[in-house]
Design a protein around this nucleic acid. Structure first.
Length: 439
RNA sequence: GGCGCGGUGGCGGAGUGGCUACGCAGAGGACUGCAAAUCCUUGUACCCCGGUUCAAAUCCGGGCCGCGCCUCCA
């Protein structure tokens, strides 16, 4: 079976052919660490984790390298640091840790590499020098700018031509730009701003440059470059410009972009203010329920997010945990793999799991998707919020059992009702009464 | 204005020419002291108008509507 992936470059689904099957390389744009990430930011974490798992399955875990960067120098981080009166490294360190912890709770495997932009200043400066030497960049008023007209193919990822870009420009064009589309590779820092010495004065790198340099560690041409739809332009377009002009070869063969997470039809974004953080949601829902919710729509489609949707997926997981209780992990259902191999069709994979009758196969398929990783007792009795302890609950169950034996059903039902109000469900079965938490 | 997505049953959400997607919710039934859980049965659909075809949710043309990008963004 061949993996099929939708490639933004061609706009089509294509057969995936790695450059070197013994070393498949994928790079995904990670977070700028200046604040809590929102649940929309978690979508690529889960989507590319699925792709990573699939590649490891197909090519062998030791033959896949997955890098996801951390942007730890940026004006937003500088702003947050200035407001808090601390160094940018403190802000970046704090939110990097939170991001990694949250990703782990979503059962995303850690990437093989998590390069930080600030570790790449030498490579960035070297790339700028190369671009200047080759006539692709120029220095102006302490800035170094990439000269877009120096690249004949510019705009082919986002399908934008020169006139459209200029006509649509919604920001004021800096007077030192030779062309309105030119973008910053290096910008000057004032004395009180973080900066690094360079041939163009003390300053800091432009946003796009870091990814062009961090991908160099994988290869000049990598297999897959991923990220959110909103990175296609300008970020990925400009990464392509920098890398391809510096190396004279394609940056990536397959460009994979996930669609937006939306709330009531509108994109979730910090600028719209309609965000819910991953961190906050993890206090209300298990990570697996959030993960499954993020997998419930195809990755290129808009995903309509709501807490109700998460609750639905939580109930689905409850059901799966019941079905697979005590089951031995078997073979991954072929229909699950087939769905994923066809451009990561996770909703179809979930449906395949629903129709699978063999509990061991369900368990294997779900675990392949990063689900059902707990034992079912922990899942049902763990919960995410506070409530009565297990001992208290067991004591009440014992009391209720006595009441039931005495046919005092009013008392028995009252105990069950009280526990339900505290988020505990009691179920009477042939083997006695079992309990679980609803969250 | 340019470019790009999308409109599927009450809801979520797959499906790219003929075959029940799937799940939730609803209805009926089994089980149960009552519940819960589970099992069985079951109804409801392809935005509009043309066209191609033996056959269209699916392909083509034209509308309408929603969303996104056009230098902060996952």
């Amino acid at each position: 079976m061949t993996l099929r992936l939708h490639n933004t470059l061609s706009g089509k689904k294509e057969d995936f052919k790695p450059i070197d099957a013994s070393n498949v390389r994928m790079y995904v744009c990670g977070p700028t660490v200046y604040d809590y990430a929102h649940i929309g930011n978690a979508r690529p974490v889960v989507v590319f984790d699925i792709l990573y798992r699939l590649l490891r399955h197909e090519y062998g875990p030791e033959h896949v390298t997955y890098a996801r960067n951390i942007t730890d120098i940026d004006d937003k981080i500088m702003k947050a640091a200035a407001e808090a009166g601390v160094e940018i490294s403190e802000i970046a360190g704090k939110y990097t840790k939170i991001y990694q912890d949250d990703a782990a709770k979503l059962n995303a495997l850690p990437p093989d590499e998590e390069p930080k932009a600030t570790d790449y200043l030498d490579q960035m400066k070297a790339m700028i020098e190369k671009l200047i030497a080759d006539g692709h960049a120029y220095e102006a008023q302490g800035h170094v700018l990439f000269h877009v007209p120096s690249m004949k193919n510019y705009g082919r990822l986002s399908n934008k031509n020169k006139d459209e870009l200029i006509a649509g420009a919604r920001v004021e064009v800096a007077p030192y730009k030779k062309d309105p589309r030119d973008f910053v590779l290096w910008k000057p820092s004032t004395a009180d701003q973080p900066g690094w010495d360079s041939p163009w004065g003390r300053g800091r790198p432009g946003w796009h440059l870091e990814c062009s340099c961090m991908t160099e560690d994988l290869a000049e041409t990598i297999d897959i470059h991923g990220g959110g739809l909103d990175l296609i332009f300008p970020h990925h377009e400009n990464e392509i410009a920098q890398s391809e002009c510096a190396h004279g070869k394609p940056l990536a063969n397959y460009w994979v972009h996930n669609g937006y997470l939306v709330l009531g039809g509108e994109k979730m974004s910090k600028s719209l203010g309609n965000i819910q953080t991953i961190h906050g949601l993890l206090k209300k829902f298990p990570g697996e329920a959030l993960r499954l919710t993020l997998m419930s729509a195809h990755y290129r489609q808009p995903l309509d997010f709501s807490e109700e949707a998460v609750k639905d997926q939580k109930r689905r997981l409850d059901r799966w945990y019941r079905i697979t209780e005590g089951a031995k992990e078997g073979e991954i259902p072929p229909a699950v793999l087939a769905a994923l191999m066809d451009d990561l069709n996770t909703p179809k994979a979930i449906a395949a799991l629903e129709t699978e009758k063999n509990p061991g196969a369900v368990l294997a398929g779900a675990r392949f998707l990063g689900l059902l990783t707990e034992n079912s007792d922990d899942w049902f009795k763990g919960g995410v919020s506070d409530g009565p302890s297990g001992e208290e609950i067991e004591a009440l169950i014992a009391e209720r059992l006595e009441a039931r034996k005495a046919k005092d059903f009013a008392r028995a039902d009252q105990i069950r009702k009280d526990l339900k109000a505290k988020g505990i469900i009691l179920e009477d079965g042939p083997g006695g009464t079992i309990w679980r938490r609803t969250d």
